[in-house]
């Protein structure tokens, strides 16, 4: 039953169209992600990691196959429904943090809570709580430009978490960070997964990321070539 899975993808195919030429990026990919699972998506550049992440995040439409999220068929939903899912169910962590420079750490976290219609004082509490979870309780009024890369990525994590999503998609979250900070970030993500039960899929080249995940999926030329559960 699909509903036992958070995400199921069947025969997902994606190609770029360059003139008359089709460049296949994902080639009939099958995938299942269970609730509370933390997955590392690995593979060489051009293997389709980011594309898969974009498809799972409803950022890029795919051409063929079927993708369900909590039993809901993504192919059959409207743009409005997609926005709603992105707003309430999905959290994003980007390699380059993608924070809003003109807002403070707290305001960056609060922004999407405000967009969820959460009232001022409640969203402030949620923002503070999530910034505390990533160890930034004493940096809440600083702007991203006044903070280090690691701190910025922690704001991004707090922002993603504050939405209470079912699924977090992280694209190379440690790539812009040094090894030590990268480990801190992964520790935080791993701990948060255990606290909140959120599922995560992390696209990364970083070998270190594998130490913190439950499962490693390797993509090669748009196909899953390895799917390995990690037992600890």
């Amino acid at each position: 039953m699909d509903k036992d899975w958070l995400v199921t993808g069947k025969n997902i195919t994606f190609h770029h169209q360059l003139g008359k030429q089709k460049i296949k990026v994902l080639d009939g990919l099958n995938l299942k992600i269970s609730k509370g699972e933390i997955i590392c998506l690995r593979g060489p550049s051009g293997s389709g990691k980011s594309t898969l992440l974009n498809i799972l995040g409803l950022i890029e439409p795919f051409q063929d196959g079927q993708l369900t999220f909590m039993g809901q068929n993504f192919s059959l939903i409207s743009e409005q429904q997609k926005n709603k899912i992105r707003r309430y169910q999905l959290g994003f962590i980007f390699q380059d943090f993608q924070l809003i420079d003109v807002l403070s750490a707290r305001e960056n976290v609060e922004w999407f809570l405000a967009r969820q219609g959460i009232k001022d004082n409640v969203r402030r509490e949620i923002a503070l709580e999530n910034l505390a979870k990533v160890g930034l309780e004493d940096q809440i009024d600083k702007k991203p430009v006044e903070m280090s890369g690691g701190q910025r990525q922690r704001i991004a994590i707090a922002r993603a978490l504050a939405k209470k999503p079912s699924f977090i998609l992280a694209d190379e979250p440690t790539a812009s960070l040094d090894q030590k900070t990268g480990k801190q970030i992964m520790s935080i993500l791993s701990a948060l997964k255990h606290q909140s039960g959120v599922s995560m899929i992390i696209a990364s080249h970083d070998e270190m990321v594998a130490e913190y995940v439950d499962r490693i999926i390797t993509l090669t030329d748009g196909k899953i070539t390895d799917d390995q559960l990690i037992s600890r």
């Binding site: 926005n83 992105r86 309430y88 994003f92 993608q98 809003i100 967009r115």
Partner: peptide
């Protein structure tokens, strides 16, 4: 454009 992309990725509609 990227920031606007990020906003849209997080559920902001074109109207928003």
């Amino acid at each position: 454009a990227r920031e606007i992309g990020m906003l849209r990725a997080n559920g902001e509609s074109n109207q928003d």
